[in-house]
Design a binder for these strands. Structure first.
Length: 420
RNA sequence: GUGGGCGUAGCUCAGCUGGUAGAGCACUCGGUUGUGGUCCGAGAUGUCGCGGGUUCGAGCCCCGUCGUUCACCCCA
């Protein structure tokens, strides 16, 4: 029996795992610089939390959750998204009791039992933030700006931002009535009609030309916004302009999670296939209350690390230089090996990255592997060096070697590498 | 969940109308004393995804299954 990973999971192993880690760190950096605090959360929760929070009618809850019974007959579900679990933790630990907004971020694996596809995995990785407790439109703009900064940090250029407002409860109810009326007089097939029944907005997202053109005349939610929602949305746009963030208003944008209200946005990459959304989010003004917390508003986003990596590869902007080592030591013989271990240990303690060529190999093969690993310097430690107390420090890019006494090796390397 | 493509060495793939497997890259060793990136030589590596069927004989045909990929759907 040869074991394989479960169907549809994304796995990262060298050399690509480096790129993955780099992408994730790029996305995380602007979040951390904006004062968001880490939430390290469980990957599974009470099933009911998701059915309530995400919405019982959504596809995510209906057909995409990994749900099972644990040994205590509790219904458990692997988290399909991050917001609901984050808010559960906020409520449970009273993290919203201090000054507001309370700002959090998370990073980790999420699970949806979908049919795998390019950019769509059953276990995927997201980075997200949540800002709880203010409906100031300026924070909407900041949240969007943070996501944008993450993508730009990677070096992505070929993506665009779509925003809309889903309004408040009243706006949506009024729109829904008119939209249903409109859809009722269209001639649609069974499956499409059923979809429209569950969420009429879905039809805006249909990819078939006949549906698209039929929906052109459909009433759009933006025209139904209450005065409050409208001024909020206008303020968000004003701030985005101040921040020089390009966006397009897409009144037909559809989100798959029920909790979204008001400002809603999506980052779409132009070089990806059907799964082109690299990040998205929005306000969820009723959600805290819905899952048992106080009536606080909130906004957040989730960014797809897997897809951001795919996008980075598509644009050819993956940066790997940051991962190259500084030094490789090639020891010859047992005594040299002990010394190599000591030197490596000492250098690492002062932040020099050091590898040792293990395995009693020849100098030639040690050099080869050092070359392949892209290390900056190489030093051979054999009997000669042990006796003379000096070794050749060879710079791989130029091939030049300078003699260094072993006792001064550590300070010498630190100066040449850090330039201090 | 629905539909199409694909599944041969670590990787990318070749294998003609069925006769029990090959290339390039990568890997290991060597090209005289302990120094890489080029070149040359040698070597190792596969239950041809898995199970069944047809056949004297299947990597090639048929069925199933698993995985993968693309699209629908959905979304990160």
């Amino acid at each position: 029996m040869r074991y394989q990973a479960p169907k549809g999971v994304s796995e990262y192993y060298p050399p690509r795992s480096r790129s993955f880690e780099w992408v994730r760190q790029c996305l995380l950096a602007p979040i951390q610089r904006a004062g968001y605090q880490l939430l390290e959360l469980p990957v599974f929760e009470d099933t009911e939390l998701f059915t309530r929070g995400v919405g019982a009618s959504t596809d995510v809850v209906n057909k995409e959750m990994y749900t099972f019974e644990d040994r205590g007959s509790r219904s458990i579900t692997l988290r399909p998204e991050g917001t609901v679990g984050a808010l559960r933790s906020v409520i449970e630990h009273g993290l919203d009791k201090g000054s507001l907004p309370a700002k959090f971020y998370y990073s980790g694996a999420f699970f949806r039992a979908e049919r795998p596809q390019a950019g769509r995995y059953r276990q995927f990785y997201s980075v997200g933030i949540e800002a709880v407790g203010t409906d100031d439109p300026a924070i909407d703009a900041e949240v969007i700006a943070i996501a944008d900064a993450g993508f730009r940090n990677i070096g992505l250029k070929q993506f665009h931002l779509e925003i809309t407002s889903l309004g408040d409860r009243e706006s949506r109810a009024a729109h829904r009535i008119d939209l249903k009326k409109f859809i009722a007089q269209l001639s649609l097939d069974e499956a499409t009609r059923n979809r429209a029944e569950i969420n009429p907005l879905r039809l805006f997202d249909d990819k078939r030309e006949e549906v698209r053109s039929a929906m052109k005349a459909a009433p759009v939610l933006l025209d139904y916004l209450s005065h409050e929602s409208k001024t909020h949305f206008e303020a968000v746009q004003k701030y985005l302009k101040v921040l020089n963030i390009d966006y397009v208003v897409n009144p037909r944008m559809v989100r798959g999670l029920d909790y979204y209200t008001g400002t809603t946005f999506e980052f779409v990459h132009d070089l990806l296939g059907a799964q082109s959304g690299i990040g998205g989010g929005g306000r969820y003004d009723g959600l805290m209350e819905e899952i048992g917390g106080s009536a606080l508003t909130g906004i957040g986003f989730g960014l797809g690390v897997d897809r951001a990596l795919l996008a980075a590869e598509a644009e050819g902007v993956v940066d790997q230089s940051a991962f190259l080592g500084d030094l490789c030591i090639i020891p010859l013989g047992d005594e040299a090996k002990s010394l190599a271990l000591q030197i490596a240990h000492e250098l690492r303690s002062v932040s020099v990255s050091v590898e040792i060529a293990f395995g009693d190999r020849s100098v030639k093969s040690g050099m080869k592997s050092a070359d392949k690993s892209g290390v900056k310097y190489v030093i051979v430690l054999g009997e000669e060096e042990l006796q003379s107390g000096a070794a050749e420090l060879k710079e791989m890019s130029t091939g030049e070697a300078t003699s260094v006494t072993l006792s001064s090796l550590v300070p010498t390397l630190v100066t040449t590498l850090t330039g201090k």
